[in-house]
Design a protein around this nucleic acid. Structure first.
Length: 457
RNA sequence: GGCGCGAUAGCAAAGCGGUUAUGCACCGGAUUGCAAAUCCGUGUAGGUGGGUUCGACUCCCGCUCGCGCCUCCA
């Protein structure tokens, strides 16, 4: 039985879908005005994994991951770049898709863009107004009245009176309560706007997710995910809007992934201590990055450093090396086999991928001993559920990152032939020299009965 | 000030009230021309002070330290 840690109840709970046999899941995706950083990589990979495991468990999944393509930062950036908002967002959506694909992230079933759902947002705001939860202020903004929604704070565990609005940012004096948030912003000079019953304007940040999720998944659905930093205020506000408008429960299970950190500090755009996925992929294979993310539990903080990536690379190489020795049945899973059982238990326990990875290593050790093609298929099969070990081992082991890898495969092969000739003459000095030269170029040789193999160190 | 999370061996990271986590690194052995890979063997980890218990890294309380949210952020 799958258990999921629910942020709403702060406990692991048995997962029971609303509709038996199928799951509806919504994840907050990117605001597209810049390249994705490692934190984005984590959300992408973590919820891809969730989606994969739900499907592997036999559930029909509808997975929605939205794209925010209109907001303050996008407008600002487009202005700075002297380009249209559409050009800017389209460009970064394409970059995001490249990054996601490199990381082995499967396409969600729907990737709605905020700007395509403005009418539905207006409809929602209308309902909120009718339900007495929204009010318009003289300058034209429409706000959500936080005090009128009884459950406000239930997700983030905050009591309204404990929140110190205005402590760190100036309070907008037109709001009835400082914590009220904007549903509709009145149009401003030089900004895009849409017509509405409240005058021209554009949507507030939170309303898009309430609108898109209800259109694509219904007013009440199973799982809503995102980064921990969205828990408050974004998800709290989504609950207020959706439940306030529809008068029914919004989401059963809330999932939040932990932060990526640098030097024990949150990686974020505001702190400026982020590195983009692309930067990392210049030095590391994307599968190494995926493995690095999956080796920690999704709710734990994940500390980034090159040393840790190196470590992950070595570890992943061990798995691929094991596969190399017994090539191999096609990936297939025998769920009665002990490793598979352990793997399933781990994954059913709130997606415990570190434990699932440990099973993979145990399997690899046994594979190294037995050289069993069946076990190799099992290893590939289970790893495949994590989106790992899908490639030919030699391709992974010999892959050169775009930075480094100064020798080409052809050059390496030719030096190996040279060395083979030297070895045949028992000229070990020459042979060892070639091997040492290759090693300093990052290439490791392995002499075996059937000749010499190489891989990148 | 409010609320929440965490502290595990050199590094990374899980489970578990009593029996090997796992990976990287390190050491010894086998193997190898020598290596590499692999196999075999080797680690008296669990912030600190109490408590519960026959027994606690694992449960409870205090303390210390670190982190996060309370503002846009995955």
């Amino acid at each position: 039985m799958l258990k999921i840690y629910n942020s709403l109840t702060r406990a692991k709970q048995d997962f029971v879908p609303i509709t038996p046999g199928s799951v509806r899941m919504y994840v907050c995706g990117m605001t597209v005005y810049d390249h994705c950083h490692l934190g984005h990589a984590r959300v992408l990979v973590v919820f891809d994994l969730v989606q994969r495991w739900l499907r592997a468990s036999g559930l029909r999944v509808t997975y929605v991951r939205n794209i925010t393509d209109i907001d303050d930062k996008i407008i600002k950036r487009a202005l700075e770049n002297k380009e249209s908002i559409g050009d800017l967002t389209n460009r970064f959506i394409a970059f995001m898709n490249d990054d996601a694909a490199a990381l082995g992230v499967e396409k969600p079933d729907h990737e709605p863009r905020a700007t395509e759902y403005v009418p539905q947002m207006l409809e929602l705001i209308g309902r909120l107004e009718k339900n007495g939860l929204a009010y318009q202020v003289p300058d034209g903004d429409v706000n959500f009245s936080v005090r009128k929604f009884p459950g406000y704070g239930k997700l983030s565990g905050k009591a309204l009176d404990d929140l110190r609005a205005g402590e760190r940012v100036d309070v907008d004096g037109t709001k009835e309560d400082p914590l009220d948030f904007v549903l509709w912003k009145h149009a401003r000079e030089g900004e895009p706007s849409w017509p509405s019953p409240w005058g021209d304007g554009r949507p507030g940040w939170h309303i898009e997710c309430s609108a898109m999720s209800s259109v694509l998944l219904g007013e009440h659905f199973d799982i809503h995910g995102g980064g921990q930093d969205l828990q408050f205020p974004h998800h709290e506000n989504e609950i207020a809007q959706s439940e306030g408008a529809h008068q029914c429960r919004f989401v059963n299970y809330w999932m939040h992934n932990g932060f990526v950190r640098v030097d024990d500090e949150k990686m974020s755009k505001s702190l400026g201590n982020f590195c983009t996925i692309k930067e990392i992929l210049r030095k590391y294979d994307p599968e190494v990055l995926r493995f690095f993310i999956l080796r920690a539990h999704y709710r734990s903080p994940l500390n980034y450093s090159d040393t840790h990536l190196d470590d992950a690379r070595q570890a992943l190489s061990r798995l691929y090396t094991a596969l190399r020795t017994a090539n191999t049945d096609p990936p297939s899973i025998d769920w009665d086999e002990p490793h598979a059982l352990r793997f399933r238990d781990a994954m059913d326990d709130d997606f415990n991928t570190p434990e699932a990875c440990a099973v993979l290593f145990d399997l690899a050790a046994e594979l190294n001993r037995s050289k069993s093609a069946t076990l190799a298929g099992q290893l590939r099969g289970l790893a495949g559920l994590l989106g790992l070990l899908g490639r030919d081992p030699q391709v992974f082991l010999q892959a050169a990152p775009s930075e480094g890898g100064e020798l080409t495969a052809e050059q390496i092969e030719s030096l190996i032939s040279e060395r083979a000739a030297a070895k045949a003459q028992k000229d070990y000095t020459a042979a060892d020299r070639i091997r040492a030269d290759l090693l300093s170029a990052g290439v490791v040789l392995e002499d075996g009965a059937s000749g010499t193999r190489w891989r990148r160190a």
